[in-house]
Amino acid sequence: MTQMLEIEGLIKRFGSLTAVDGISFSVDRGEVLGFLGPNGAGKTTAMRMVTGFLPPTSGRVLVEGFDVATDPIAVKKRIGYLPEGAPLYEDMTPLELLGFVADVRGISGAAKGRAIGQAAERINIRHVLRQSIGTLSKGFKRRVGIAQAILHDPDVLILDEPTDGLDPNQKHEVRRLINEMAPNKAIVISTHLLEEVEMVCSRAIVIARGRIVADGTPLELEARSRHHNAVVVRLPGDQADACRGQISAIEGVASVEVVSDGSGAAQLIAFSQSGGVIIDRVSAQLRGSDFRIDELRVERGRLDDVFRELTTAA
């Protein structure tokens, strides 16, 4: 079966600046791909090429087999797109805007009312449908933007920073919605919120300076962190040095860092050599000694470490 979304060697140059430098990936039904990268990495430019807004300098975009360069209308029919910043016609009401989008997408009659009703229901904007968009809060505008993107129940959904500017409850709601739609669609979201990747994405691509620097599941990315499988021990500050000596000697422990907090307790972080599991040996060692341990836990790895490492490497 062909992939829902296939991107091959996508390049975009603006004059001498190369914004996107040879990106290839594909997304299948049921996948939620997180597009990660610092600001200016080329996420938005890449999405604009996928949705047919910008013509690429070279490379190909296929949506369900249709090439965006030769058959843009067929591609646009199959995609729902939330552009960066959710630009909307501010002088319209959400109802008018959704009506317009339905008209352009050829949804008419009873189906039109049903589609608008469903989208408004799912994204929870029913009570502001008749208010001018210009008067809505940032969060509502973003949600109207999402409603507009899912109106025709597209197979491919491209959302550029869908939760930007939303409060924690609204973020939760949008993420729940994405998870809910995920099984039937190929979804690409761009974000710089790492927790979002963990919560909604089945796969993450990190891009920096226009290139893909990592591609894997959030867990695989976390495993690249030096915090992966590190053990954190909290105990009274006066025992810290002795404990550190004991843990350092354990096989598989690369190094131990001590962080003291204000309350007189100390936190030891024992990093694992090559990411292997060390908690069993560390806990056995501690059980045999008489330190007063307040807390003992394993770290999964920190996505933001990995992110920083990948995107700032020279």
């Binding site: 604009r48 949705t51 047919g52 807004f53 843009p72 209308i73 646009k76 029919k77 995609i79 797109y81 552009p83 910043g85 630009p87 909307l88 016609y89 501010e90 989008v101 352009v104 997408r105 050829g106 507009q148």
Partner: peptide, 14 residues
């Protein structure tokens, strides 16, 4: 200026 051109031109419109 408002950026709505991006929304309009990514709808199935020639």
């Amino acid at each position: 200026k408002a950026g709505t051109l991006e929304m309009l031109m990514t709808l199935p419109v020639s």
